[in-house]
Design a protein around this nucleic acid. Structure first.
Lengths: 154, 154
DNA sequence: TTTAGATCGTCTGTTCTGCAGATCATCTTG
DNA sequence: CAAGATGATCTGCAGAACAGACGATCTAAA
């Protein structure tokens, strides 16, 4: 978690807001195995993409060995389960349990609350403006971590 | 370096933009000992705050033991030097060398270029709007890392 | 003044995370 | 069927960060 330059206007403000958001989000995700990344894995499992762990790892920008024990933890808490892929006996298919679905719904709601909390100082109009501007920047940002399907579709 | 939720609009866009900025900034700061944090230390040394390493560490949000070898590296490259504090023989005062000043000037310029690069997709008006909105959020963000003097003045 | 406690910077040892590489089972291609 | 690629896992290692201890020094109370 490299902190950016203090001096630069953009870097400073961007970093401060981002860290504020991450800090609050981490509290929300504290109980979830794997933290933020565990949430991402859970999300993917729920969306039922059913892709291999390896492509999933690449999509999330983590190492394949990390993915192994990430899923281990998630499975140990009963939020997710590994099922054999009927078409490839090497691979495992990831699916969320009922508890996983419930947990994900709760967590997502809590994250939206965090987002609202961060945006408190802005008026509704300003919030929309900010979203638009950030989206415009984000889409021009060429980040494989956030643009996964462009590099490796399921 | 915890990545936030993919789903949340704000979290996703904010994270993508921030990572894009950090990634570019890291390239600029790659040659500097200590990377981004080394730059922050160098900045503080130049601003001549002359506070103790400990308060400096707290301000930058790093451990005191980390601060030790951070400064070690910076000093080894001749960008910074530790001088004994005349008023307290336990403490050391941090000051930047001439080389440190030059390096800092170059690096700061490069970082501004990165910032401009990130903001490319926006019109000048939009850039100013974004800065304003982010600043408004940042100042309401209670982040000790970015609001150091509030918690521990020099 | 003397003494007890706090503080500064450093050092040591430990823990944790993530990566490279090897391994085994399986799929695919020739 | 043989040879190579691929999926998931495991092992070992390297780097970073933390807790704790340490010597030196400052500060405040007796």
């Amino acid at each position: 978690m490299p902190t950016p330059a203090v001096e630069s206007d953009l870097g400073w403000a961007l970093g401060a807001v981002f860290r504020g958001y991450v800090r609050a989000a981490e509290q929300v995700l504290a109980g979830l195995p794997g933290g933020p990344r565990g949430y991402q894995v859970l999300t993917t499992a729920i969306e039922g993409e059913s892709c291999s762990q390896q492509t999933l790892a690449h999509r999330l920008g983590v190492d394949k060995t990390v993915m192994t024990y990430l899923i281990d933890d998630l499975e140990r808490t009963g939020l997710v389960e590994r099922r054999p892929d009927p078409t490839d006996r090497r691979a495992r298919l990831l699916s969320a349990t009922d508890a996983g679905h419930r947990r994900h719904t709760e967590t997502t709601a809590a994250l939206h609350a965090v987002e609202a909390e961060v945006l408190t100082p802005l008026t509704p109009t300003e919030r929309e403006t900010l979203r638009d501007l950030l989206r415009k920047l984000a889409t021009h940002q060429g980040d494989p971590t956030t643009h996964p399907c462009a590099t490796n579709p399921c």
